[in-house]
Simulated scan of single mutants.
Amino acid sequence: MQLRNRAAAAAGNQQELNPQENKLIVDKKRHAAKDVNEAEPKAKRNALTDLSRQIHNFVIDSSRKDASKKSEVKKPKTGALQPIAESKSSKEIAVAETKKVVKKPAYDFDKECAHDIASNAVFANDIFVYYRSREPLFKVTNYTEKHRDITHEMRMILGDWMVEVQENFELYHETLYLAVKLVDIYLDKVDKVRQEQLQLLGSSAIFVASKFDERSPPLIDDFLYICNESYKRQDLIDMEIHFLQVVGFEALTAPLSYRFLRRYSRVIKSDMQTLTAARYLLESSLLCVEYAPMSESKIAAACLLWALRVKKVGDWDPILEQYSGYSVEEIEPLMMSLNHMVAIRKTFMRKVSTVFEKYSHEIFFRVSLLSPLTDIYEQAGNNIVIPANC
């Protein structure tokens, strides 16, 4: 209210002034503004602007510049031959550079799958690169040397029984591979396991893996039934708790060879029969503890190479080398070792037959009946041969 009263009073005072007084006030203001303008210094010249105004019409004679350069070149002295530097052309330089750099195919599988939301094409390559980086975290050793009660044959029988459980419960293959990986990690970390605990250990591994991968995992009563009621309900619960305490929850995210195999098969758009043949070889390797220390990505690549050659549909090409990171020289020795395992199956795996019978079915294209490649380790007999560079 006080501000409004002051403003009204000031307006009233201006209205009370007569026209002559108003004119005097305006003249004073004009003279004051003129004095201020004269007191301000003059604007400085802009050097760049003035210079550009002066030379914008100036034409440079390039002939004089070339002539001055030519005159500066010194002539060689007479009687002395000067060495001439050989200058390579741009074409020769490009050819030399292409020889140093390994050519990668201009094929981008993930770009072709960009329209498919389920393929996760944007992050697919980064995911498998991340899998490769995590493989050393879950590497196991040949733990049978420290377990007196566990032999190679017993480990093979356990793996065969786990394959049978996976088939009867119709579980995902990822569940089977994760369960076998968890068993290997557990046996590698503990110092002693009794023989009568192996079936309980396998049940706990499948139980944990099915909770992680399956939509509807089997119940505890289902596992007690397949174990012929050899264990009590509390035994399985206690073993599950102890199992997770040993392997750790991080082991549930361990890279699996089955996922690498599917990735390699997809990038080359392999047919289902070739993929199934590779799956048969890879699943057979789950029974052998000798292949437990192998890299998951490498053994998957070796199995696919074996299937390509057995089916005679191709070989290791630059696309597979790009997406797997392995050359044919790196995986061929391991592939021949796996081929030897199939060649001696009748004698080496005489007590286990679940994998062979599973893949001899028509739904799996009877790939277990395929003839293996020439066995270069035939002299090794019924022993699995692991090359030194694997």
Results as ranks from 00 to 15, higher is better:
Ala33Phe: 08
Tyr107Glu: 03
Lys74Asn: 00
His31Asp: 10
Thr49Trp: 10
Ser52Val: 03
Thr49Val: 11
Ile55Cys: 00
Lys42Leu: 05
Ala43Thr: 09
Lys75His: 08
Ala47Arg: 13
Arg53Asp: 12
Pro76Glu: 14
Phe109Ile: 02
Ser71Asp: 08
Asn57Lys: 14
Arg64Asn: 10
Ser89Thr: 12
Glu21Ser: 06
Ser62Phe: 09
Asp50Gln: 07
Asp110Cys: 03
Asp27Thr: 07
Ala106Asp: 09
Pro83Thr: 06
Lys75Val: 07
Asp50Ile: 04
Ser89Met: 07
Gln20Tyr: 04
Val101Lys: 13
Lys29Ile: 03
Ala32Trp: 05
Lys34Met: 11
Gln82Cys: 06
Asn22Asp: 07
Ser71Ala: 14
Ile117Trp: 05
Ser87Met: 14
Thr98Cys: 09
His56Ser: 10
Ile117Ala: 13
Glu16His: 15
Ser87Gln: 15
Lys70Val: 04
Lys29Met: 11
Glu92Leu: 03
Lys77Tyr: 12
His31Lys: 15
Ile60Val: 11
Glu16Trp: 09
Ile84Asn: 09
Ser63Asp: 06
Ser89Pro: 00
Pro76Val: 08
Gln20Ile: 00
Val26Met: 13
Leu17Gln: 11
Pro41Gln: 13
Pro19Gln: 13
Leu24Gly: 04
Lys88Leu: 01
Pro19Glu: 09
Ile93Pro: 00
Arg30Asn: 06
Asp35Met: 10
Lys99Glu: 03
Pro83Ala: 12
Leu24Cys: 02
Ala33Leu: 13
Ala94Gly: 03
His31Leu: 10
Val95Gln: 06
Ala114Trp: 09
